[in-house]
Design a protein around this nucleic acid. Structure first.
Lengths: 310, 310
DNA sequence: ACACACTGTTTACGGAATAAACAGTCCTAG
DNA sequence: CTAGGACTGTTTATTCCGTAAACAGTGTGT
């Protein structure tokens, strides 16, 4: 009955959920999946994912490579378990921090922290939604943060994808720098400087005017956090979207259980007027921008003429 | 003099920029870097990055594995060149599409297209800013789209990181699904359904209430595009940020070298007036938004009161 | 007591990147 | 015109990978 679905489960996923039939007969087991995963994680932390070979893990535990296959059906499974171990579940603190935005930001930070502590996790190929306890916990934490909003469940998933995408991307880039630092034996600033120098010789103002300008401006030496910027913009956009959707009187798509009051405001007279005012203001802003650009162009031409005359 | 910097260039990068000393002596070359890269890309397109071995590439060209090392100093270089070939440069159409937002969205779409056409590019580890002609071209295109905004160069880079991050993340997830489709021989819908089924057996409402609710709501079977959603929110946030920064009267950060005529127009009278008008329009829009939100809140309360009375 | 499920080990295979030594080719300096 | 030697693609060898298959020893349930 209940076991009918289990045989369909991919082997590694079954292991992750702890659905492993412990044998009764035969000699005592000398190892355990946990110890194997632990050893593998230690190796990966120290020397990267590529250093994790069945032989290396076995050697660290004092056994022969093939012995591991009694516990783990393939290396792929081991890696899935490593990911599960390294990623962990979100902490209580981030699961209960302030409003939805604070909680998502906390989630981002904690995920990024994990990625920086175990950068090899970023090298693991992604195939579909990982159906493991910890990844489910992260997803659940994000969704519960968004539960206070009027968003559709589909939209909540999309927002979560935005958050995890940002932490994944930030981790990828930052871990890339960290790796170069270790390989070349330089500190971050030295890398930045040498990269900047290389750019200066390769990027000409002819071929790449804007990129060259950015280099000249020292933008590549800047130490601000572009990922925090990206996340802040994204969540700002989400916040706008929530407000706009509420204003549109959009009904939540799924069934009866969702926040029902959105539709109510759509035909409210005062609200409709306010909305009309917003649209007018948007148009006014667009026009003003157009005039501003035109003025800038004219001013530039005027100056150029003055300069060529003198 | 000019060659002083070249020896410092990583081998692969020198190749990418076409700075390769063509030897004059010795037998005629039978291959070329281009043909090797082409063959490697064909293999990767057909069977993934892991199928690209020096032996496989050589075999496809009818040579022995070691012969390739006369053209490419290591596999790492070959992979860099493959990436350069597969990624290409942004098309004229996306470089000149509408306003900054349209152009960044076009950039995102074109990058994603490349990732889907050559998913193996996503398996290549990232180390620092790739200093290749094509990646510089993408960056330059994005920066030139943002040139019409008042953003700092540092901020423009951050926005570009947001855009490329989104396309990279979208590519990673979508390519992951595509790979599973090919490996398991199922179509996308079948995968979704089996994933959904697996989720339903593993994700309990006790342990993961919100995730379970999302599953029940069918959010995992939804076919909308969460990445387009994420990008739209991000750029919306950027747009807000630009407006807010302008309202704050923030001046562009970088120093004196910047596009010299920028400083010139700053004290042009007509331009200053146009700029003042923009700020006023922005403030008007913010106020309208505030009123809109307030109206929505009041409308909702009014309806709630009506409902509780009936 | 004994079958046999289960343990960790040994051996073997095919494939990977690339170092080192090799014979053949063709430009260029003398 | 003729070597010297730069440069070609090849051969051979080393080291490491994941894992299939056969193996001898161990301990439990019948």
């Amino acid at each position: 009955m209940t076991d009918a679905a289990e045989p369909e489960l991919p082997r590694g996923i079954a292991l992750a959920w702890g659905v492993a039939a412990n044998p009764q007969r035969g000699p005592k087991r000398e190892m355990s999946v946990e110890r194997i995963v632990e050893a593998a994680v230690e190796i990966a932390d120290a020397e990267g994912l590529s250093a994790v070979s069945m032989a290396a893990v076995a050697a660290r535990l004092g056994f022969t490579p093939m012995s591991l296959y009694r516990y783990v059906s393939a290396k792929e499974d081991l890696i899935l378990l490593m990911q599960e171990e390294a990623t962990g579940a979100p902490s209580e603190a981030t699961r209960t921090a302030g409003g939805w935005r604070e909680r998502l930001e906390a989630l981002y930070r904690e995920q990024l922290q994990h990625y920086l502590a175990h950068p090899w996790v970023l090298d693991i190929p992604i195939s579909g939604v990982p159906a493991t306890p910890n990844s489910a916990a992260w997803m659940d934490a994000g969704l519960s943060a968004l539960a206070e909003t009027d968003l559709t469940y589909t939209e909540r998933l999309a927002v979560m994808l935005l958050v995890t995408g940002t932490s994944h991307w930030a981790g990828t880039i930052l871990a890339g720098y960290a790796r170069v630092e270790r390989e070349r034996g330089l500190d971050g600033e030295a890398i930045s400087r040498s990269e900047d120098a290389m750019f200066r010789t390769l990027i000409t103002a002819d071929a790449y005017p804007e990129l060259r300008a950015a280099i000249e401006a020292g933008a590549f030496l800047d130490e601000s956090d572009p990922f925090a910027f990206a996340l802040a913009r994204g969540l700002e956009g989400v916040s706008d979207y929530i407000a706009a959707a509420a204003a549109d009187g959009r009904r939540d798509a799924p069934g009866a259980w969702v926040v029902p009051d959105d539709a109510d405001i759509a035909d409210d007279k005062k609200f409709r007027e306010a909305r009309k005012a917003v649209r007018a203001a948007e148009k006014a802003l667009r026009d003003a921008h157009k005039l501003e650009r035109q003025a800038a162009r004219e001013a530039r031409e005027r100056r150029a003429r003055q300069r060529s005359e003198s």
